[in-house]
């Protein structure tokens, strides 16, 4: 019995992420220190057992509850053992929170999927190529209260399964090194005062970093 997680991202401009990025760059005056900001929906379904992970993944992709193929791209994963239980207890999303790639419709990530290199897939998913000296830092932001919902009946290999939702924020920024990038990204993430932080409200949301800050590949490196 495994937990299944999947990421969904819009195909076109994400107005929420764009507005947040512009507020950071312009309103809060960070300028080109912040290079990009991306937002994904992250869903974790508990203990799928009435079908294989691949069948579940196909069901999610064909059902438009979270995913509309005309609007979104997705990737699904078997989660780390005990992932859902850890999250449900208002704990952090476990790290590593994903164990195995099940499926993705992103052509640029198919090679990573076929090679089974989860880290490559995640790095490619979470941050596009950027400029030299840029780092990408990803955080999962989740409701601190019990946010468990149940899958509605029908369209799924089973019914009554519990699921949790979170947001995966990826901040691409300039920094001297990975540690500085991680610390700065966390400052931008968490709302502490009127002039610092924006994406997570610590009085109602928790967050956890997904790995360390990653140097972004440049476009030239990707093309090569």
């Amino acid at each position: 019995m495994s937990d299944l997680s999947f990421l969904v991202r819009g195909r076109s401009v994400d107005l929420v992420a764009m507005t947040a990025r512009r507020a950071l760059q312009t309103t809060l005056g960070l300028g080109d220190e912040v290079l990009d900001l991306m937002r994904d929906q992250l869903v974790c379904i508990a203990g799928v057992e009435d079908a294989s992970a691949a069948e579940w993944s196909a069901a999610i992709a064909s059902h438009q509850h979270w995913f509309n193929p005309n609007k979104h791209r997705f990737a699904s994963f078997v989660s780390a053992d005990g992932a859902f239980a850890a999250i449900k207890g208002n704990g952090d999303w476990p790290s590593p929170w994903l164990r195995e790639i099940v499926d993705t419709d992103r052509p640029d990530l198919v090679a990573a999927r076929e090679s089974g290199k989860l880290e490559d897939l995640l790095a490619g998913w979470m941050a596009p190529p950027s400029e030299a000296g840029a780092f990408a830092v990803s955080f999962i932001a989740y409701d601190l209260e019990d946010g468990v919902s149940r899958l509605p009946v029908g369209h799924w290999p089973g019914s009554g399964y519990e699921f949790l939702q979170a947001v995966l924020w990826t901040i691409v920024l300039r920094a001297e090194d990975a540690a500085a990038a991680r610390a700065r990204a966390e400052e931008l993430l968490v709302t502490r005062t009127r002039t610092s932080g924006m994406l997570v409200h610590p009085h109602m949301e928790g967050y956890t970093a997904v790995g360390a800050a990653r140097p972004c590949k440049t476009t030239t490196e990707v093309q090569a």
Binding site: L15, V16, T19, A20, A23, T27, L28, M198, H201
Partner: peptide, 12 residues
């Protein structure tokens, strides 16, 4: 449009 969280963008 309540983007990110209700009121947060205007608050900045």
């Amino acid at each position: 449009q309540d983007r990110v969280r209700a009121g947060v963008i205007a608050s900045k």
